[in-house]
Design a protein around this nucleic acid. Sequence first.
DNA 1: GTGAATGCAAAACCTTTGCAACTGG
DNA 2: CCAGTTGCAAAGGTTTTGCATTCAC
Lengths: 158, 158
Amino acid sequence: MPCLLHGMATPSNHTQTADETIHGRGLRMTDQRRAVYDVIMGERDHPTAVEVFTRVRGKVPTISLATVYNCLDTLTGCGLVKTVAHEREPARYCPNLEEHAHFFCESCGAVTDLPLRSRKKPEDVWYFPGEFSVSHHEVSFSGTCPKCSAKAAKSNKR
Amino acid sequence: MPCLLHGMATPSNHTQTADETIHGRGLRMTDQRRAVYDVIMGERDHPTAVEVFTRVRGKVPTISLATVYNCLDTLTGCGLVKTVAHEREPARYCPNLEEHAHFFCESCGAVTDLPLRSRKKPEDVWYFPGEFSVSHHEVSFSGTCPKCSAKAAKSNKR
DNA sequence: GTGAATGCAAAACCTTTGCAACTGG
DNA sequence: CCAGTTGCAAAGGTTTTGCATTCAC
């Protein structure tokens, strides 16, 4: 079964399979690449390379960590997956190709996607002193997620 | 000459010297800490730890890289300096304590501070699905800076 | 068949740590 | 004086690289 793309890298490929995207770049679809892609599309919890490695080993026990890094590079290069950097932590990988920010819970470590509110643009919030041409932006928040906030409120009551 | 604080960590300390801030935490002001702080306050070009190390060696030739990391930790812990993380690059250090975002030029590597426009809030741009309590946020843009845009425009004309 | 991709090991890189020697208040 | 800080060297964790082998097309 081919892997369908969720989200959109570009308007034209929203029904393209990952196989087609890879082939479109003159690259090959290997078991390892498919397995890495499936893991990231599966839990969608922003795993690190090592976490992807651990999960992928279930399906492809011979895969090496170097190959996982290779596959992640290829998939991000093709626009199938996005890299998420936060502080000095290891890189995480995200299958959500829509415009979004990330929330990092300082208590449980969970990473949550925050979609863009309609008609809002990050560029409007900041003052650009000159002719900057913006190609990317990355926005991250940290604090306490709803689950951990609720937990804290409960234990404070007692 | 004591180092005056620029920007504000908290409203109350805007005329406090770095010495006073350090002493206020029960810590000592050493030659190394002062030199590291002066380097960061000097060029304000968001140097990495290794760049700070190289510059500081001019004043304190015996300083070690581990001590530079130590000093940077202490200074950020005291709120005198902020850490700037971008992708998988080494951490950079910033003496601007005002609320701001960063622009990373993909052509020349320069890092520019982008101040907040008045009456705008980053939290308004994103949709938070639940009761998130935000303690920090970090916003970074990348693309081409004015200097490099101008250079590119000039060479395109010919 | 052939160039691309894998797997392994080793290296590179940034950062932290352990500990004896030193020093600021 | 003496806890806090330094300097050195060694280790830690993440990511990359080189190269022989394997595999997708």
